[in-house]
Design a protein around this nucleic acid. Structure first.
Length: 304
DNA sequence: TAGCCAACTTAGAGTCGTCC
DNA sequence: GGACGACTCTAAGTTGGCTA
């Protein structure tokens, strides 16, 4: 491999092909025509002595060699962009960037409104968007640069992902204010009533159990989960109609209790308190625009 | 003789049109 | 939707004439 004779622009084409899996769309991404990308792919194949992408139907499927090159090439391109001056300064007041965060609806209620307020004050041109996604998608979305940050419980992540703890998220039990549960709001929910009353649970994948059930099992008890919903907001709305209780993050319960007419109780047993963490690509560690957003998120969650 | 500049040459990468 | 051939364009290198 003669690096002196290698056209580094071909790496941009390679990266676009990895992202798009299509010669036409890769061309649109890098500002070339489809034949030009096809020719560039030919030169890449000759230089690297590998097919790199094999056509399968309407998709260009990467070979193992291409898969192995994908991340190092992407990281190298990002370093080059930074080195050439694209990232060394960030002016919030002049920025028109759109940041994409991923997290549960919990964050759209608790974090995003305050974050937007904070961001807007410094950076009126910046736009924020929160996408909801199933756990397990974090790696892929970060790798594809589809999101800037993920807000999640602790995950097992590869070495190219950085993380920072945001806050602890203890559970609380919510019930309709009209419900007579045998305890006053702020007190521990009676264990027998907790196990007997039908419950709603927030569940992305439809499973009907979670950390609370594990804690109950260790105490030799069970509960009756009758409704699984993908969003905390819908769980709270179901509880507010009466006849159900639910365990939700304490901060979320406090935020919606007054508006929805809910009472908030302590759990009847000790449940492990989950951490909430922020995840991003390690290559953005020193990116000023990215670091600026992370600092704003930390500011906002400090109150939680 | 050295330095500058314009004209010419060439290689490589692009687009367009077409085929499979 | 990708590959290929024909043609075009551009940038870099080379050459030769002019000038100090």
């Amino acid at each position: 491999m003669n690096i002196a004779a290698f056209d580094l622009n071909l790496l941009r084409v390679f990266d676009a092909l990895m992202r798009e899996r299509s010669v036409t769309r890769a061309g649109e991404r890098v500002g070339l025509s489809q034949p030009a990308v096809s020719a560039a792919l030919g030169r890449l194949r000759a230089a690297l002595q590998d097919q790199l992408f094999v056509r399968r139907g309407t998709e260009m499927v990467p070979t193992p060699r291409a898969e192995a090159l994908a991340e190092p090439v992407r990281a190298a391109l990002a370093q080059l962009e930074t080195a050439l001056g694209g990232d060394d300064r960030f002016d919030p007041a002049a920025s028109t960037r759109t940041y994409t965060l991923m997290g549960a609806d919990f964050f759209s209620t608790l974090v995003l409104p305050r974050l937007f307020e904070r961001v807007r004050a410094e950076a009126p041109g910046v736009r924020l968007r929160l996408v909801d996604s199933a756990r397990g998608e974090v790696d892929r979305l970060l790798q594809e640069d589809a999101i800037d940050l993920a807000l999640e419980r602790p995950l097992s992540t590869p070495s190219w992902i950085s993380s920072e703890r945001l806050f602890l998220s203890p559970f609380a039990v919510i019930a309709a204010r009209s419900e007579n549960v045998g305890a006053r709001p702020g007190e521990a929910f009676p264990l027998d009533g907790f196990c007997a009353l039908p419950q709603a649970i927030r569940s992305i994948d439809g499973s009907m159990s979670g950390l609370v059930d594990q804690a109950l099992a260790e105490a030799g008890r069970t509960r009756e989960v009758v409704l699984a919903l993908p969003h905390f907001q819908s769980v709270a709305l179901a509880v507010a109609r009466g006849g159900l209780i639910a365990c939700v993050p304490r901060q979320f319960a406090d935020a919606v209790a007054t508006e929805l007419g809910l009472s908030v109780y302590l759990p009847p047993i000790s449940v492990p308190v989950p951490e909430i963490k922020m995840y991003w690509r390690k290559r953005h560690d020193r990116n000023p625009a990215h670091a600026w957003l992370r600092a704003r998120v930390l500011d906002v969650v400090a109150d939680l």
